[in-house]
């Protein structure tokens, strides 16, 4: 299965994604340059972390005009699995592919730490087969990861099972303390209605090796391989 990782100018998590995917059986990762309009036959796409186009103006705001984004939108509309990590999540919300927006962290500062997230809904090829309520230990590193959506949108997200991850403590309880960036309802990741597009602030690619602190993030990539093999993802 080919997984395309998009490099915007200013992306810096692209190599980490490639290196991590190389370790996942059944994945064949490849880089896609942001000026490209050819997805090179990718079966799934990842928009990595970083500071696309410098994050100037608003994170992700200028990246949405990179030529590749038209293809990403088309690919997503046809049901292809897309994962936006950190800055990739910001790009997806700015491009209107995911609901909500990411604001400056509650405590203003950039924050790099290990955190826990609870899988709230597994209605996505990236989480298929992962039991809801599972707690994953993951790295976070961002200055603008404070998720915001209005009340009506949040109601819809919950009803339709679009809240993929919530920040929590190691036991799986959400609280003000575990919600390190102040996201509304502790939301750490959401999907679109169909579930094929997932955006998340934590970094699964940095949480896929026990030597580096956690291997919990690997479950996303393994789920993807499983659901693709099962033909569960329509395109």
């Amino acid at each position: 299965m080919k997984v395309g990782v998009v490099t915007f100018p200013g992306s810096n998590g692209d190599t980490d994604c490639i290196e991590t995917l190389k370790l996942v059986e059944g994945c064949e990762p490849q880089l896609i340059w942001h000026k490209s309009t050819d997805l090179m036959g990718a079966d799934a796409l990842i928009l990595p972390g970083g500071f696309a186009h410098g994050d100037y103006l608003r994170p992700g705001s200028i990246a949405q005009f990179s030529p590749v984004m038209r293809e990403v939108a088309r690919f997503a509309a046809s049901g292809g699995p897309v994962l936006g990590i950190c800055n990739g999540f910001q790009v997806l919300t700015e491009a209107g592919l995911l609901p909500g927006a990411l604001l400056r962290n509650q405590y203003i500062l950039f924050h790099c730490a290990w955190t826990h997230v609870r899988v709230s809904s597994n209605r996505s090829p990236w989480l298929e087969g992962v039991e809801e309520g599972t707690v994953l230990r993951m790295a976070v590193a961002h200055g603008q990861g404070n998720y915001f959506a209005d009340t009506e949108t949040r109601r819809r997200l919950v009803e339709q099972g679009q809240v993929a991850f919530e920040y929590c403590d190691p036991e799986g309880n959400t609280s003000g303390e575990s919600n390190h960036n102040g996201s509304v309802d502790s939301i750490a990741g959401v999907t679109n209605e169909a579930g094929n597009i997932l955006g998340m602030m934590p970094h699964p690619e940095r949480s896929s090796d026990p030597l580096l602190g956690s291997a919990d993030g690997r479950v996303l990539f393994e789920s993807l391989v499983r659901s693709m093999a099962a033909g569960a993802v329509g395109r």
Binding site: N12, G13, T15, D16, E19, T20, G49, L109, F110, H111, C112, A113, A139, A141, H203, E205, R206, S208, D209, L211, L212, G213
Partner: peptide, 14 residues
């Protein structure tokens, strides 16, 4: 101080 620094990027920090 160091939580303001990204120290996990690069997937090499043991």
């Amino acid at each position: 101080v160091w939580e303001q620094y990204d120290h996990t990027i690069g997937t090499s920090t043991v």
